[in-house]
Design a protein around this nucleic acid. Sequence first.
RNA 1: GGUCCCAUCGUCUAGAGGCCUAGGACAGUGCCCUCUCAAGGCAUAGACACGGGUUCGAAUCCCGUUGGGACCGCCA
Length: 479
Amino acid sequence: MQEIRTRFAPSPTGYLHIGGARTALFNYLFARQHKGAFILRIEDTDVARSTEESTTAILDAMNWLGLDYDEGPFFQSQRFALYKEHAYKLLKDDKAYKCFCTAEELEARRQEAFKQGKPPRYDGRCREAGDKDKPFAIRFKSPQIGKTIVKDHIKGAVAFENSEIDDLIILRSDSTPTYNLCVVVDDATMRITHVIRGDDHLNNTPKQIMMYEAFGYNIPEFAHVPMILGSDKTRLSKRHGATSVMAYKEMGYLPHALVNYLARLGWSHGDEEIFSMAELIEKFSLENVGKSSGVFNPEKLLWLNAHYIKNTKPEEIAKLLRPFLEAKGCKISDDEKPAMAVKTLQERSKTLVEMADGAEFYFKDEIVYDEKAVQKFLKPDIKDVLQKLIARLKGIELFLYSGIEKAFQNLVEETGLKLGSIAQPVRVALTGKTTSPGIFEVIEILGKEETVFSGANARFEPKTRKRWLDKTEHTILSM
RNA sequence: GGUCCCAUCGUCUAGAGGCCUAGGACAGUGCCCUCUCAAGGCAUAGACACGGGUUCGAAUCCCGUUGGGACCGCCA
């Protein structure tokens, strides 16, 4: 049984985008499932547009997504000799010819054809031109009779009339190779068995098949996956929001949430929605990739992200959260507190950015008070109750959830107040906001010292004071 | 303009001729739970683009129409 080999072949002209990531993922899954090899190839034959930064960005993104490759990255720019050799071989075999038309002439003819509403095809005029003492490009002499059938794992058999396919340039007049030549040479020499790529390449495929045949190479299997569209059903672009994979990292997404989302965009396994990487590798199949293009739905991605935030160990989330907290100026000393804080926020955060916002107060000596919240909940008439609460909290030996809860309950019984009318002011006093994790857990994590002290120092005047006061500063509640 | 691809709820999709009064998920709506915000639970609304065939029977097969998309480069 032959080894399954797939490849992802981005061109380094920008960051890794959502569509590319999905193509990479499908190739990765297919290779892993068949215990084959996943190869990364950088298609940088267009020297003018390719940049090293793009290559790095793509590598970073793949690494973040967990798409590790077995071979590569290979750079086409380092294989020019090989392509040139192939082009000249075809020339020698009379399967290609020199074209002396200039780029300008070609462009003018194309414009003219468009104007007349005709297909802008090359007319093959240099096929019989022979040799001239002029600069030339090399064109592939594509067979003009018969049909070429693309047997595609997703689209089925797609037939093209050979007469519709024109002679494409494989070697530019500056001796650099073009895309179609490179892909064929590389896929053949790298022994790629399955070419899984976007269906924008479907129309190129017959040309490539012709070249495989001209070289006498085996034709790989093809699978053309449908495009990803934006909400208006046009090709996904920046207009529709973030398209860069790494932008999602910055927005606080978990890599596996994106992976899971991308896998389910176009592929399905019955009614299942949640897949671990291991499950994806086990269950993925090209047969279950849909034929139609799909709209990228940020809301569902967000839901998946929330799901994984909820269902990942707090310690792991804490690790991922750390840079987000530090970006907000939080100083993280120990490892225990972040994990505890995370635990209280997992059910209420859809992204790590959101979680960092919610966790900020745990880690800052100074918190920002929401003015409206202060005015609404920290009224003087609550001072008395707060004072009583502080006294009770002070009396707790083991400062844990159950004891704290009991302190509140006792106070509720004693004062006849509703829990809410006590909890809300305390929440504002401790967090500066009206929304937070459960107040008992907040108090437990903050600890006795900080709770009692900041509770005592809670603002009752709309000044710009922060929660944590220096011990020497005066307190509003006299203690 | 030519070639090619595609077509089930708003979105992702299940559906391989009878299991479909079309299932699930996200988003929406309502209720429950509740110290806030969430999460969760329950319920609800919502689709086979259209027209012809084939068949006892079609979301499923065929043809056409319409609508979307991709490609037509000395870009990849």
